[in-house]
Amino acid sequence: MPQRVPDLGVGVGLRVPHYRRVVDERPKVDWFECISENFMVDGGKPLHFLDAVRETYPVILHGVSMNLGGADPLDPAHLAKLKALVRRVEPAWASDHLCWSAGGGHHLHDLLPLPMTLEVARHVARRVRQVEDTLEVPFAIENVSSYMTFHDDELSEWEFVSEVVEAADCGLLLDVNNVFVSAFNHGFDARAYLDGVPHERVFQMHLAGHTDAGTHLLDTHDHPVRDEVWELYRHACRRVGRRATSIERDDHIPELEELLAEAEIVRRLRDEEAPR
């Protein structure tokens, strides 16, 4: 049986330009998602504001560079820092991406797609278990978007994701925008993807904006959520159910109000499609 995590409601990614206002004004949002690596520091503003936000809100730790799909060994220093942060924040769960981000000892700081094979799925699952055992909090992996596939691929992306989360016995952070982007780039059916992953393992969903580059979509997190993605989120709510959902914005970060307005749309759609 998958672990159970609470439905935290509607969250927003905590970003530097909003630190001060979030702490001073305590806006109406249920929780914040923090990029773990930004807080693996000794002191100063990041930890000061993290602690201040944590006094009022639940915080979820979302990592970007654990290299879960890498062949290089997991970095023990990175794991130790994440563990210390988990102790400090006490998140209901932590997460990172189903991807690789370093190879041959060099970090690329990107979310790179993996060859989708059973062998790779089992490899990633072993590493996820290692992270779960270290952190001692529920752990979820996020589906990434991509614009590259491999000759080696033998599974559909949703089969691959399902293999990993089942074998690792972990949660899924279902990024609906990433499903949309990859569906366009690789020509699969986004709804079939959402229908095909194990719904009981979904801890959380992500929503973000992307950029249309003509030949492909880029997962840029620099726009409001697109209408087509809101539609897909409705479908996800109907199929998966009512899950903690957060808005991600990493570039062209707007006023806090704009993100809070998007969070209110999430709230309404959740209530309409997956009422309590």
């Binding site: 491999f150 000759h151 080696d152 020509g187």
Partner: peptide, 30 residues
């Protein structure tokens, strides 16, 4: 060509090149 599966809109080389460009955009920005 050896490892990446090309498709009509994006050749194998173009797919890899997108990620290579991103490596420099991201790190120059940082």
């Amino acid at each position: 060509d050896r490892v990446v599966r090309g498709q009509p809109r994006l050749s194998a080389a173009r797919q890899l090149e997108l990620y290579r460009e991103q490596f420099f955009f991201r790190h120059l920005d940082a």
